[in-house]
Design a protein around this nucleic acid. Structure first.
Lengths: 250, 250
DNA sequence: GCTGCTCCTTGACGTGGGTCAATACCCCTG
DNA sequence: CAGGGGTATTGACCCACGTCAAGGAGCAGC
């Protein structure tokens, strides 16, 4: 507890639920997840309460304002986490992906929507059942606290971005954090894949589509990045300078 | 756990530390705090590790980037929690006050500074000692998780504000949340006291001093609020409409 | 009650990013 | 490979908010 928590939480369902070989035990992300708090013998407790679900791109997993009955753990794909104003203005709080635990920032109703960007696969846990697991395994609660604390640190960084950074700085910041995230998954170095649209990026960075597009173009003219493949593929040409811009230096 | 957590955490020092009558036992905020997780007999464990500190207005309690050795629990006064960019641009993440627990959103170093706005009184806990208390009292960790989750909900609301609301909406939102907070402390109805400067409010709302000042003036011309006493006292004249503006309606 | 702070307000003007609109690009599908 | 729909880029223009600058209000010290 109280340590930097960058390891995502990943859980998968058990044979009891699915009639398949025990996925929790062989989950390749378990070592970096809350599940690492439980030893192999106890893993089935987790697997027993997980329900695997799949969603197509654009599908809604959770609607803002719905009664919060479940927590979710993404095992594959990209989602967006958004809040809306009555007139339709949208703010995206993040792009949770493989390993992210959803539903922590919850009262009795969800304070945000979750929508699939790519085909999405996740494990669903009912609040009540997860509560029971936590009672039996207090280490699990410690990991949840670590996760919440990490989310809070990220959220504070995003507040700084939204409140004080320029469009160019926001985009640089976003590209660098995507780069770091994706490099952790053994993707090619200095390359970022962006499954979300420009509209998603705009709503994440507090900008418009046009400003995002112009900022991309300007970073390209400045030889900091390169664009390919229908705007979804970005190569970082000058990593150090891009990071400096994202951090608000100069 | 996983319930709406609006109750702040308040702890005070024990006679063991201060040679004074047991403050934890008679702390008037204990019922709404993490301390409510511990019964009267165990309270001394908390009091034993708390060190009371006082700061003058403007003093720095925590410097962004310092090694995070302590947690803090504010017992009286207003503080500001800020992050800086290298060129001096500042974003205030919040105005913690009586009952707020500081230091959750922390890795090995503090990701923010904490500065006193008014005379400030707080209890300091070393991370290591608090860790020991948590080991003995797992309910304490549950309360910390609730607190972190609540902070996260607030942070997400602030991201929506910073990314998508107009200056007028931001100020209305801020005044309403201060009103709600201060009414919980039995202050006069429909009245808000603002101990922070216009610059603090601007850096909290992602605006400039001038825009904040103009937005105040416009809310006043529109008969939604009234200003007195050197700009620090605000009366809310039309609570419903102010709330609607803050929520982005119309 | 004057002096000198600091903080706030207000006005005049500038600009980064929003808005509107026209293409361009990229895949589909047939 | 032509047509069509979604998405991205680019340009021209506009405006909410930032910048700069000039008072004003409150208050502490003497």
């Amino acid at each position: 507890m109280f340590i930097d928590q960058t390891r995502p939480i990943v859980i998968e369902r058990s044979p009891a639920n699915a009639g398949m070989p025990d996925p929790c035990a062989k989950c390749d992300a378990r070592g970096q997840s809350v599940c690492s708090a439980m030893d192999a013998a106890d893993l089935s407790r987790l697997a027993d309460i997980a329900v695997v679900q799949s969603y197509d791109p654009g599908a809604t997993v959770v609607e803002e304002g719905d009664l919060a009955a479940y927590f979710y753990n993404i095992t594959a794909g990209y989602a967006r986490l958004c809040k809306l104003l009555p007139d339709g203005r949208r703010q995206i709080m993040g792009f949770p992906t493989r390993g992210h635990f959803l539903g922590l920032a919850v009262t009795t109703t969800y304070g945000f929507s979750v929508e699939a960007i790519t085909p999405l696969r996740l494990c669903r846990f009912s609040r009540a059942k997860l509560r029971a697991v936590i009672n039996d395994f207090p280490q699990f609660e410690s990991r949840l606290l670590e996760t919440a604390v990490h989310e809070l640190v990220v959220a504070q960084g995003q507040m700084l971005l939204l409140g004080r950074k320029t469009a160019r700085e926001r985009l640089a910041s976003f590209l660098m954090s995507e780069l770091v995230t994706q490099e952790a998954c053994a993707c090619p170095r200095n390359h970022v894949h962006l499954p979300m649209t420009r509209a998603d990026i705009a709503d994440y960075l507090g900008l418009t589509i046009e400003t995002v597009s112009r900022s991309f173009s300007r970073l390209k003219t400045d030889r900091l990045i390169d664009l390919h493949g229908g705007a979804a593929e970005v190569t970082i040409l000058d990593r150090r300078r891009l990071a400096a811009i994202g951090d608000g230096e100069t």
